[in-house]
């Protein structure tokens, strides 16, 4: 555990809680892609199956349980509790175009051809693109609530911090996981355009809206 890893995890946790609080306080999930949230629930479920087989640390187990619990709570709020506020018409990204290729890639390129390892690889690949329905929705409507942009910023920051964590681990532990690193870099690149808008608009007190 290093400082980048810890702050990365906390940033991830902050993102998840910001989103839950936004929906809960406003009693609305307007502007939130339910499809991205379903993908994240799938990501956590397929990655954290090792909760049942391997104990790593109390920290590790607690965070996994919290991430999974929050992911399903978010999906429940969007599709059940506050379903009436869900903007399904604008959430039109075709997720099969992500899930099918990612599934194929996980079977082809993995560290070990075993059930758990392929599911883990699938979750790593899927996480790297799971935000696309959300970004697609924002580009379609041309705007995002400020609280939604804070959520996206924390989520992107988590990924950027993980890259620093891998640099640290490579230098000080001689460790690297190519699958996690490549997927993590792809995921971070997807946020670059958003980071630019966040810094130039949202941090200056303006609402995030895209030019028509």
């Amino acid at each position: 555990m290093n400082i980048f890893r810890l702050t990365g995890d906390l940033s991830h946790l902050a993102a998840i809680i910001i989103l839950l609080l936004k929906i809960w306080k406003s009693r609305s999930c307007a502007g939130i892609s339910g499809k991205s949230q379903i993908l994240f629930a799938i990501v956590f479920t397929t990655r954290y199956l090792d909760l049942l087989s391997t104990f790593i640390s109390l920290y590790n187990s607690c965070m996994k349980v919290i991430y999974i619990g929050c992911a399903y709570a978010t999906v429940y709020m969007i599709y059940m509790k506050f379903r009436a506020t869900y903007d399904g018409n604008h959430d039109s990204f075709r997720v099969e175009f992500l899930v099918v290729p990612v599934g194929g890639l996980a079977v082809l390129i993995n560290h070990d051809f075993s059930f758990m390892e392929i599911l883990w690889t699938f979750s790593i690949y899927l996480e790297s693109v799971a935000i696309l329905p959300q970004l697609f929705m924002i580009s379609k409507t041309g705007e995002a609530e400020t609280i939604t942009t804070h959520y996206l910023f924390c989520l992107g920051l988590y990924r950027a911090l993980y890259i620093f964590n891998w640099v640290w681990r490579f230098y000080f532990e001689g460790f690297f996981d190519l699958i996690a690193i490549v997927a993590g870099v792809v995921q971070t690149i997807l946020y670059c355009d958003f980071f630019y808008l966040y810094v130039t608009k949202v941090l200056k007190g303006k609402k995030l809206s895209l030019p028509a």
Binding site: D50, T54, I56, S57, H111, I179
Partner: peptide
């Protein structure tokens, strides 16, 4: 193997 086993990262 180069992978994290056990997977300590989240």
């Amino acid at each position: 193997s180069l992978s994290i086993n056990p997977k300590d990262e989240l």
